[in-house]
Nucleic acid binder design. Structure first.
Lengths: 296, 296
DNA sequence: ATACTTAATATGAAAAAGATATCATGCGCT
DNA sequence: AGCGCATGATATCTTTTTCATATTAAGTAT
């Protein structure tokens, strides 16, 4: 697909000499004459005025020349773009991620990736694990960063670990438990407790509840849809305490303090997740890049 | 030049099925697979994800599809345009014409031609015969409408008659000669006389002078560069009389009157003139059109 | 006229594209 | 699990297209 004939035409138009043009094209003169004639027949328009003395463009040829050049140039650009997309240095990518993934190193990683890949458009959307899985399967997003654990049925998906966070207990400054350096799990018994809904991160929710139960803790739960800004506002307001991912502490807030938990709680494993066979070079590059940010 | 491979790609992308695509393209499936592979090799990018169960576009293919469609559409447009230029229903044409050609039927003809040929851009410029010939030879214009007579050396040009005009004598209203219905040539003897310069229309000038001389008229000449508006202003102001082409009378003016000449004067033959071998279909159409306007 | 340049034509060779037959793979269905 | 069906890939041969060589035709310059 070299647009042979079009190139032949352009070369003859540039040289205005079949012999020289043929030489430049590394073919003999007769086939060049034939090909030009073929183009003329196809277009139904004579492009060159030939005499044995000189060759010149007809108005039709004059009209075609710049257009033909533009077309070829266009094709070059298209090729480059397609190659870029194939290499992952260009393209679009929609990423759904749980709020806990939004750490400073995540933001920095995204910003740098965008800078290093000017051709790439990233579509970022914060969502719950459940929503992200649905969005993945309905192809609304290409890649998710969500809480993953062994209980989930994701045989239709592939994944790779991003990072593992610990739980922290978020407390109002003046809470009695804030006196301790670390809080035993059992101290949470009967405490007013703010948690995300089971709907949002079902299996994580179940795991946490199971752990609490095992520690003999029967929390007094106030449910909210997502672990976001709202959780911290409620905790700071003294509505209750909350188990939050450690990344939350990056977001300091007046009247709010964090303490490590002493006891067995499930891992907060955030994974990259994508549909099987949908891993593009671009996604691969983004995953590698973000993962590298975590490790340093 | 049917952009075979690009079309193959598009068809497969549309059908997402090599067999059906091949059928639509009236070729067998194996060569289609080969050609697609050839494109992929050339681009260095896999465009389709194949399984025995279904075919789908990769991001690279997704990127190429609209571009490829646009490219082909572009090519269609280019072809049409080139054909239009070849047919003379589109293109550019620069026309240089002497002032005398600017009759009402000329203007009407031009206006109508433009209306009937929307793709055509006409470049009109009023110029002298001498200037027009130079502009023709230096390819500044494509076609001229000028005073032509047998004395001129135009072996490098071709021409066709446009129209032949008679001379009229332009007089101030109150001039004594305005009393007569027609003016004998000999009456012009020693009269103040306004004429274009020899430079402007050399051989016409010579012919007119020769005719005057033959009639024993020795005019008293005030020369101006061109026979335009200015001539009539000068005549109306009583500076002198002038021999003008009959087309001038279409432009009525206060204090100015025209009388036929009684005597032998050269023909005022306005011809289309163009370079040899430069007669394009567009020029041909314009010439035919304008000529038809004269005859009715 | 004669030599020279240049594009067109004729004919056969090489390369590219296509057809037919066959294989490999994966899925659904008993 | 095994069989049939659908689908794309591979191998090999045929056809078509493109190209090269030799030659011709036409026009210019000497």
């Amino acid at each position: 697909m070299r647009f042979r004939k079009l190139n032949y035409f352009i070369t003859v138009a540039e040289e205005l000499h079949f012999g020289r043009a043929a030489a430049r094209l590394h073919i003999a003169q007769p086939p060049l004459s034939q090909q030009i004639k073929a183009i003329e027949d196809e277009l139904g328009a004579v492009l060159f005025e030939r005499s044995s003395q000189k060759v010149s463009l007809t108005p039709a040829g004059e009209a075609l020349l710049p257009q033909a050049r533009a077309l070829l140039q266009n094709w070059e650009k298209i090729q480059e773009q397609v190659r870029s997309v194939a290499n992952g240095t260009a393209g679009n990518l929609s990423l759904g991620f749980v709020w806990a993934a939004g750490t400073p190193h995540f933001s920095k990683g995204i910003a740098q990736f965008k800078q290093d890949n000017h051709g790439v458009t990233l579509n970022l959307e914060e969502m719950t694990t459940a929503h992200a899985l649905d969005a993945l399967r309905t192809e609304k997003i290409d890649l998710a960063m969500i809480f993953l654990n062994p209980l989930m049925d994701i045989t239709d998906l592939e994944h790779q670990e991003y990072e593992i966070q610990k739980h922290l207990l978020a407390l109002p400054d003046n809470h009695p438990l804030a006196q301790k350096d670390s809080v035993p799990l059992s101290d949470l018994h009967q405490l007013p407790f703010i948690s995300f809904t089971r709907q949002a991160h079902p299996s994580l929710y179940d795991q946490i509840m199971h752990s609490l139960h095992a520690a003999g803790v029967e929390p007094n739960i106030v449910q909210i849809a997502r672990l976001t800004q709202t959780t911290r506002t409620l905790v700071a307001a003294g509505v209750g305490v909350a188990l939050v991912p450690e990344s939350t502490q990056f977001d300091q807030r007046e009247g709010l303090t964090y303490r490590p938990i002493d006891g067995v709680l499930p891992e907060l494993a955030i994974h990259f997740v994508w549909r099987k066979n949908s891993l593009t070079p671009l996604m691969e590059r983004l995953i590698t890049h973000l993962h590298a940010q975590v490790l340093r």
